[in-house]
Amino acid sequence: MSTVMLAGSTVDVDPEGFLEHPEQWSEPIAEEIARTNGIQSLTERHWQVVNFMRTTYLESGSAPSIRSLGKTSGVPIKELYELFPKGPAKLAAKIGGIPKPRGCI
């Protein structure tokens, strides 16, 4: 675990840059993580996915699979990959300040 400065706050991250403590997250932190991962600005559709990931994780303790993300987030799979070309579930989790999803699907 290491400590980094994101959007003016100190946060704990894992070696891949995922927040260790979801409660340290804020929207400006999300914007900054997005920028360093190739997404210049988060649109409403990005936020829809990020918020869905975050809410699901906080409510159930695990991040949704790409399948349920496509079915229940309101953003279909094709668009998910357009919004997050480097991997929707992984990147939306990172931006949403939750741990990296561990599923294979």
Binding site: I66, Y81, P85, G87, A89, K90, L91, C104, I105
Partner: peptide
Amino acid sequence: LIMANGARMEG
């Protein structure tokens, strides 16, 4: 299929 989907999930 799992390998292909998993690859895309990692970008």
